[in-house]
């Protein structure tokens, strides 16, 4: 567990890092938060713990410089969406003042808040679901509230389907959180038979993978846009199955969200896996 935290803390100057690591709850840190002029905080089991270090301009600039490798041009797309993916799959959220040119968001200046969400790889979290997924052989949607471990679950599901059942899986890793590839090498274990398409939009990625990699499964994290849903519906007619996640507290919550209604109407998914805040997994069959 400390390995992931150390990776995420690498973007902080040494004194701040040491201060956090000395805390007795350090190994359970889920998130770091820095707000300009406020103490640095760490979230442990949903509770923010303040540290006696103030987040000033210099500290934030050091973190941004390290996270972008002093190359904003290389991460401008992510920066304009308010986040950066760091080596190891950790996500840095960014708040500041947007700079627009010709009606388009070009960059962020005057950074006011930063958050680093510590990504973790836990083998075995999908043990209870992988058999069910293979037996049914149909697309699976995993839902749950933010921070309940949907991405970690999906990662392990992909790994197990590939390594235990030799399934050919293609991942559209738009935000590079699933595989977190660096230099083409995934930082997380996604199994031996997984093809990873990084930093490509989901809709575009689904089309590319269908054309080029003939996958049995396509995995996607966090379906949020209508165009992604449309691409999934189209692809489902081609016989490919999906492993996906979405933000929703329950099936009722999912049904209430317009973006997912067409997915349910077209019956793209037959198996729903609901994760709750206690990390319990509740399977639910969607009627044919």
């Amino acid at each position: 567990m400390m390995k992931y935290l150390l990776e995420a803390l690498a973007y902080l100057p040494e004194p701040v890092k040491t201060c956090i690591l000395r805390h007795p709850q350090a190994k359970h840190v889920e998130e770091l938060r820095l707000r300009r002029g406020q103490p640095v905080t760490c979230t442990v089991r949903g509770v923010e713990i303040p540290f006696p270090v103030q987040a000033g301009e210099e500290l934030m600039q050091v973190m941004i410089d390290r996270a972008t490798e002093r190359s904003p041009h290389a991460v401008m797309n992510m920066l304009c969406e308010g986040y950066l993916i760091l080596p190891g799959g950790h996500r840095m959220g960014i708040c500041g003042t947007g700079v627009y040119r010709e009606g388009k968001l070009r960059t962020m200046r005057d950074i006011s808040s930063l958050s680093i969400r510590v990504a973790r790889e836990i083998h075995g979290v999908a043990d209870g679901a992988v058999g069910e997924v293979m037996t049914r052989g149909s697309s699976v949607l995993c839902i749950g509230p933010p921070g309940c471990g949907k991405t970690t679950f999906l990662r392990d599901l992909i790994r197990q389907l590939g390594s235990l059942y030799h399934q050919r899986i293609a991942v559209v890793d738009e935000r590079r959180e699933l595989g977190a590839c660096i230099g083409g090498v995934p930082q997380f274990d996604l199994g031996p038979s997984t093809d990873i398409l990084s930093s490509v939009g989901k809709a575009e990625g689904i089309e590319m993978l269908l054309r080029s990699m003939s996958p049995q499964w396509i995995a996607l994290d966090e379906i949020t846009a209508m165009r992604d849903v449309r691409a999934m519906v189209q692809a489902s007619y081609c016989g490919v199955r999906f492993l996906a996640t979405a933000h929703a507290e329950s099936f009722e919550d999912l049904k209430a969200r317009p973006v997912y209604q067409s997915l349910l109407r077209e019956k793209v998914f037959r198996l729903l896996l609901c994760l709750n805040r206690e990390k319990e997994l509740l399977p639910m069959e969607l009627s044919a």
């Binding site: 002093r70 190359s71 290389a74």
Partner: peptide, 8 residues
């Protein structure tokens, strides 16, 4: 073309 980081 590659949009790699400056050090790379």
């Amino acid at each position: 073309y590659t949009m790699y980081s400056v050090p790379k």
